[in-house]
Nucleic acid binder design. Structure first.
Lengths: 336, 336
DNA sequence: TTGTATGCGTTATCAG
DNA sequence: CTGATAACGCATACAA
């Protein structure tokens, strides 16, 4: 029936001691006698005392909350990531404030702002596809709120981040294609403006060279990531005089559209064309024509490492000048 | 460079007026003169003043945070739900604290406890599969923290909740099967202990009767929701002397296993057996042998309604004695 | 070992 | 219209 919550003062009054003694007793302060400590704890339990966290937060300038900003939870990649973050947070007695950016820079700014107002102790963020300007993070410095990026990270070095190196997985993919006798390997890449796309093209080219396979610009087909764009990107490849027999596709959603397109156009996946996809959709095993393999990017691992970085920063409280950590995992080719 | 954040007091000092005046000016209190208000605001802007929310939260006994507890974000159903909640929360200037229960009662309790300590202003929760004892919510009363349930809700009436009535969708499904000439329709149901399963069996039986189709206990096959259990449940149906030609499956994950099993055992979906699934996996359109249709349960709508209920309770602040709201949406059969 | 006093940043009450 | 003061619940420096 919602009585007024018990406070330290009440316990003190009932016990005819001072609030500070109660406070210390409850916190197992060494200077308090065993007997009083016990008395206080007993009374606290009896009254059902529970500390008012908001008061503590206010006083200690710590909220025990971290904010997590990511594009979209409906992508399995991020659902896995946030679970890992939640686990890591729980270990440190922290809770997770959630914000989905939906790849909108405007929303990213708002969320950062809200989190800042809430005085979260730190932020973990995966950038939206088009975000390059990080000036909005500067406002965080004012309150010494550390931010760690993962997966889609800024290019600057002086910011803590963990990401996945796609070049290793790409190389393994090309190698796998070559072993299966493919000579013409294509890449369906994201928008040319994306840093992520540029990197992929680079690694793709390098891997081909290392494997002694030819690279030709026509074999890199860009999509705007809409269904239509995905279709067209695939179509461009199919229209080449020398059709590629193998293709690396930008992500699972592109791959799904590719599969759909193939079905509608009587292209047989695994026969006319072989596919390897980035990321790793949990459902491939149920599909009739799944990709040959996927380039695993370890969302949970990335997120865990980022969390641990963040807690190191939080617990350091800006005391020491810690070195900026940058971690990079190797992606890997995995078969379903 | 992390200077000490500017406070109201500093503004007051610089302007040689009292802090309370500054506070009122910043809040556009009508009793403050226009000139002072302007002066204060200008100075505040100059100094880059930002209110310390934690202090305000503390003072106002409001955190502007709601907690959301659900089983698993990796289920698309809940990913959609939480996005709807986030949107609704943003409209009310609220932020979302996240907790995944993973269907563990222990975790549910811990999360509720953590949220309570953080003094969230309210909670939205979808219960884990096995949760029936709601005593852990009683602790919330102490702080007048309202809780609203959605989708997987407690049976009691005196608790605000919104769920989806499956009987309408089930009826439409059975009708659709009948129109296609099916006489033997089966149900792959969840564990018998689950309230949700019992309800489904009931609605299933009723729908068959209304459609003039026979009901037989053998045609309700229970699974423990593991892959093995799903396989066996399907197998039991296939082993009946009179094999069902149509089947309603407990949820999308069961359906996926069913599809897998069918493929491995040369059962042709859409020919040997026709399937309608609960919920609506966003990926059916990419599959070669998708279910005929799905029973849509409107996660986003459920979550939105629950959010609005919650904010009504929060904004009422326990002043009036509001009636307990119970909403029920009708499920619907949808084709892909 | 314990109590007293003070402050965290803000707002509300009351007085002027 | 504005200022002084108290209060929210807790923790801590200092005093005893």
């Amino acid at each position: 029936m919602a009585n007024k919550p018990v406070t330290i003062k009440e316990i003190a009054r009932k016990l005819r001691i001072s609030p500070s003694t109660v406070s210390r007793a409850l916190n197992d302060h060494p200077s308090i006698g065993l007997v009083t400590t016990e008395r206080v704890k007993k009374m606290a339990a009896e009254l059902g005392y529970e500390p008012n966290q908001t008061a503590i937060f206010f006083k200690q300038r710590r909220t025990f909350i971290i904010g997590v900003i990511l594009p979209k939870l409906s992508e399995p990649f991020f659902a896995e990531a946030i679970s890992a973050i939640e686990d890591e947070a729980a270990k440190h007695n922290y809770t997770v404030l959630l914000g989905q950016s939906l790849d909108s820079i405007e929303r990213e700014k708002n969320i950062v702002n809200t989190f800042r107002n809430h005085r979260v102790d730190g932020i973990i963020m995966s950038l939206g596809k088009n975000t390059t300007d990080l000036s909005f993070t500067e406002a965080l410095n004012k309150y010494n709120i550390p931010i760690v990026f993962f997966d889609c990270v800024p290019e600057q070095l002086n910011v803590p981040k963990v990401s996945c190196d796609l070049s290793t997985g790409i190389y393994e993919a090309i190698e796998a294609f070559k072993q299966r006798g493919h000579q013409h390997v294509a890449l369906i890449n994201g928008p040319e403006t994306l840093h992520a796309s540029v990197e992929r093209t680079h690694s793709f080219k390098q891997a081909l060279e290392r494997c002694g396979l030819p690279f030709h610009e026509d074999y890199v087909s860009h999509t705007d990531l809409t269904e239509k764009g995905n279709f067209e990107a695939f179509q461009r490849l199919r229209n080449l005089k020398e059709k590629p027999s193998a293709v690396l596709s930008f992500n699972d959603f592109v791959t799904l559209d590719l599969i759909k397109y193939a079905k509608e156009n009587n292209v047989l996946i695994g026969y006319d064309i072989h596919v390897i996809s980035f990321a790793n959709y949990p459902l491939w095993k149920y599909m009739d024509n799944p990709p040959l393999a996927s380039i695993e990017q370890y969302p949970a691992e990335q997120a865990s490492i980022a969390s641990r970085m963040l807690f190191r920063l939080i617990n350091n409280e800006g005391k020491e000048e810690l070195p900026v950590e940058n971690a990079k995992l190797s992606s890997k080719l995995v078969y379903q």
